[in-house]
């Protein structure tokens, strides 16, 4: 019961993070929100594994935590290069992510 509530609550947080990623307004806000979505996914996988009585899901959560971190850093490096080469100082009013 509590576990179902917790899973639902984490899903709500994930939804809010997705909404924030959609609203932006800058590309950095979007990456921040996507990063948060990823860490909440890890928590959701763990909580859902307990809810369904299959804690084997934890291995998936563990690898997801690592992949999420590497993915965010990779996306960031790409964005950093694009913005410092093509549009110096153009991060503030950017609307295309």
């Amino acid at each position: 019961m509590i576990l179902a509530g917790v899973s639902l609550g984490i899903l709500v947080v994930m939804g809010l993070a997705l909404l924030s990623a959609y609203l932006g307004p800058t590309v950095y806000d979007r990456i921040l929100a996507v990063n948060m979505f990823g860490t909440k996914t890890v928590l959701f996988i763990a909580a859902y594994g307990f809810l369904t009585g299959r804690p084997d899901f934890l291995d998936i959560a563990l690898s997801y935590a690592l992949i999420n971190f590497i993915g965010v850093i990779a996306a960031l490096r790409y964005v950093e290069r694009v913005y410092s080469v093509e549009k110096p100082g153009g991060g503030a009013d950017d609307d295309t992510a």
Partner: peptide, 9 residues
């Protein structure tokens, strides 16, 4: 978590 997500907005 929910409070932090609200803070995002």
């Amino acid at each position: 978590g929910i409070i932090g997500a609200v803070g995002l907005f």
